[in-house]
Design a protein around this nucleic acid. Structure first.
Length: 439
RNA sequence: GCCUUGGUAGUAUAGUACGGCCUAGUAUAAGCGGCUGUCGCCCGCUAGACCCGGGUUCGAAUCCCGGCCAAGGCGCCA
């Protein structure tokens, strides 16, 4: 098919801008054909763009032959332009429709699409991800990523206002550092390198110079996790702050989370509605419980965990029934946390690390960091990590490392709670998991 | 990595307990035709599928074995 030119074509309105006030006005719309309903003498084309849909109505006997011929060619998912007149009418879904004066076909699409884009026959997650570029056209998916955008905007706004600088640390690193998660190995000009699992060490070093930093970016974990809340590549929102401790960054975190919920509620009413999800703005401070208290609570519920152990998924599900949606777990056993988390002064078996839970999912983890090189080396050894492979990082602790603290939010997990989605892959544009590497 | 469940047209499902009325049903999508107010439009027609390999049997979508793939749970991890 010969396509029409986009020359001298400027969108005047998005579909959501078309309201009754524009009655009789001329508009230029750009978008995709979501649906065609042809009743014989009248044809309805549902035009979709990022903001929603608008009905284009073609009364066949009243429009020009040119319009009619053009609209005969149109199929689902074609990208088209419509120049036309807005008409207020009670008979259309939104009380307005557009009567076209010019139609251009700007792009075509296959007749048989791999998934149903109108949602009449919903596809399962596998089919959807296989056809992800098309799947993302569904208004629910546009809503999810619009919400994620606003959430991130809210996070950035709070952090900028508090004087944080946005930074970018390396994704390619020399050695398997933090311990814990498995890393992906890459070939770096013949040397063995790894994809970073977190910006932890770099952001700590940066507090010596930039004082308050944050980073938003992807990180990689080569864990063979098979759950609804894990990805091999995920986006982390990391902050690190000089001259602060866990208490300080927890308070900042509360403000961030509260602002995110507030802004998403205010700016994404339509999106939340599309997702049929309601979002409460949590009150601060959040409920905070110690690890010791958690063990007592679990015991009452018949679930016993030995002190020092991490909390099992089963245990977290039990806790979700006891505590509100957002709650902190503090004073973890030092042994259960990463080497850089600062032990408590009085009881070194406990540490100043914390997790922010949302129901049974760990949303954020953070804490006060160790600023003493000597102590850090001790902790590395306890964790059976070699101080030698942390040589460069340890050097920084000779150059004036201030007391500092920080945290990291899992952006996809945050998006899950904001959108009410149960599977992290639904809130990831192109998820990477144990088995999926494409698209 | 372990466990459970599953794999039927483009998509989503019925059928599998107990092999044979399955020449595999239905919805939706697709193609063709009809219809002037649809909004999950409607009506008619057309075409479209049993994951792969082996086995049992007169006969396998259905039972058995192996493989591959997926979903969910656990573990790991955040």
């Amino acid at each position: 098919m010969k396509l029409d030119s986009i020359d001298e074509l400027t969108r005047t309105h998005y579909s959501s801008d078309i309201t009754a006030e524009l009655d009789s006005k001329k508009v230029t719309l750009l978008g995709w054909v979501q649906e065609i309903r042809d009743l014989g003498g009248i044809r309805f084309i549902i035009l979709q763009d990022r903001t929603g849909t608008i009905q284009v109505t073609i009364p066949k006997k009243k429009v020009s032959a040119e319009i009619l011929t053009k609209s005969d060619l149109i199929q689902k998912r074609y990208s088209i332009s419509i120049k036309g007149i807005v008409k207020e009418t009670k008979m259309s879904p939104r009380g307005v429709e557009v009567i076209p004066k010019e139609i251009r076909i700007l792009g075509t699409a296959a007749a048989q699409l791999p998934i149903d884009i109108t949602g009449k026959t919903p596809a399962n997650i596998e089919s959807r991800l296989d056809a992800r570029s098309l799947d993302l056209c569904l208004e629910q998916n546009v809503a999810i990523f619009t919400i994620q955008h606003h959430a991130l905007e809210a996070i950035r706004n709070v952090l900028f206002k508090k004087g944080f600088l946005e930074v970018h640390t390396p994704r390619i690193i020399a050695s398997a550092t933090e311990g814990g998660a498995e890393l992906f190995a890459v070939d770096y000009f013949g040397k063995k390198a790894f994809l970073a699992q977190s910006p932890q060490l770099y952001k700590e070093q940066l507090v010596m110079s930039l004082e308050k930093v944050f980073e938003v970016g992807p990180f990689f974990r080569a864990e063979e996790s098979h759950t609804r809340r894990h990805l091999s590549e995920f986006v982390s929102v990391d902050i690190e702050q000089a001259f602060s401790d866990a208490r300080g960054v927890m308070s900042l975190l509360e403000q961030v989370i509260r602002q995110v919920c507030y802004d998403v509620n205010r700016n994404c009413k339509k999106e939340l509605d599309i997702l049929n999800h309601s979002l409460k703005v949590p009150s601060v401070p959040f409920k905070s419980v110690t690890y010791d208290q958690v063990l007592i609570d679990l015991k009452k519920e018949g679930s016993e965990i030995e002190w020092g152990e991490d909390l099992s998924t089963e245990a977290l599900r039990v806790l979700a029934k006891i505590y509100p949606e957002f709650y902190f777990i503090t004073e973890w056993p030092t042994i259960s946390k990463a080497f850089y988390i600062k032990p408590c002064k009085t009881i070194p078996e406990k540490c100043e690390g914390f997790d922010l839970m949302w129901k049974w999912i760990e949303l954020v983890s953070g804490g006060s960091r160790i600023a003493s090189k000597k102590l850090l080396i001790e902790r590395l050894k306890q964790k059976e990590l070699s101080p030698k492979s942390f040589e460069h990082h340890l050097k920084a602790f000779e150059y004036g490392m201030p007391p500092h603290a920080g945290w990291a939010i899992g952006l996809e997990r945050l998006t899950m709670l904001l959108t009410g989605k149960q599977n992290i892959r639904e809130v990831t544009l192109y998820p990477r998991d144990r088995t999926r590497l494409t698209p």
